[in-house]
């Protein structure tokens, strides 16, 4: 459970207020372009400071912690992998020994790559893989990080509809397997409908919700204008 308590984020003229509790499970984050979806996730992951307020995960306050100490993993729209490092080197960065890839790390990495279906690409560079395969590699790293919260900042937006659907299903399965709370930013209500039980909506400089996704998409729901 993630709790935003009287959170205010200000960047120049932009302002976003959040006073909500995000339940466990899969939640989609919906809002118009420029509403502050990425800003909200950046604040949660520690990449952007709060102007005021607090963030709690369960009962632990996390907004004062540096990004790498927070219980969150994040996958961005792009630049999720270091392009000059092979997949095994990329994933090794979140394993124990950080100067070289040990045999035990390689085994561990192989296991998670099997889970995301790209074990045969372990020694490839990201540039030698498709967009979907890169997203799977980024997901594998998330599994290695073993954080209870996964933030997805439109990571699949550049993929075709089938690949995107496959990856959302994969995230859903992994999140259920590992008991991970997922926040997925999406522009596409279909993504929200496909998987997310809940959604939060960014509108008029505020974060609203959480709502049942189906209810939010109703004619009288908060996403009426958005649709």
């Amino acid at each position: 459970m993630i709790r935003f308590e009287d959170v205010i984020i200000e960047i120049g003229d932009f302002r976003l207020a959040a006073n909500i509790t995000v339940p466990k499970g899969f939640t989609s984050v919906i809002g118009q372009s420029g509403a502050g979806k990425s800003t909200l996730l950046s604040a949660l992951s520690g990449h952007r400071p709060l102007t005021s307020g607090k963030i709690f995960v369960d009962e632990t306050r996390i907004d004062l912690l540096p990004p790498n100490k927070r219980p969150c993993s994040i996958i961005f729209q792009e630049f999720n992998l270091f392009p000059h490092l092979s997949i095994v080197q990329n994933l090794n960065l979140v394993c124990g020994n950080k100067f070289f890839v040990s045999e035990s790390s390689r085994k561990k990495i192989k296991r998670v790559l099997e889970k995301v279906g790209i074990v045969e690409l372990i020694d490839r560079l990201p540039s030698e893989m498709s967009g979907g395969q890169q997203s799977r590699a980024a997901l594998a790293r998330v599994l290695l990080q073993r954080n209870p919260i996964l933030l997805l900042d439109e990571p699949f937006s550049a993929l075709g509809p089938n690949q995107k659907s496959e990856l959302i299903d994969l995230v859903d399965n992994l999140s259920k397997d590992q008991d991970i709370t997922v926040l997925l930013i999406t522009h596409d209500p279909k993504d929200a409908q496909q998987i997310a039980g809940h959604c939060i909506v960014l509108k008029d400089q505020s974060v609203l919700g959480p709502f049942e996704t189906s209810a939010a998409l109703d004619e009288d729901g908060p996403l009426k204008g958005y649709l």
Binding site: S45, G46, H47, P66, P67, N68, S73, I74, F76, F79, N80, L81, F82, L85, Q89, L93, V94, K98, F99, R141, Q145
Partner: peptide, 21 residues
Amino acid sequence: TEFENLSRSVGLTGIYWVWWV
């Protein structure tokens, strides 16, 4: 600039960041 967010998200800092990136 390019790798700031990614490095922070995987906790890659200091000498490790120098070595790998």
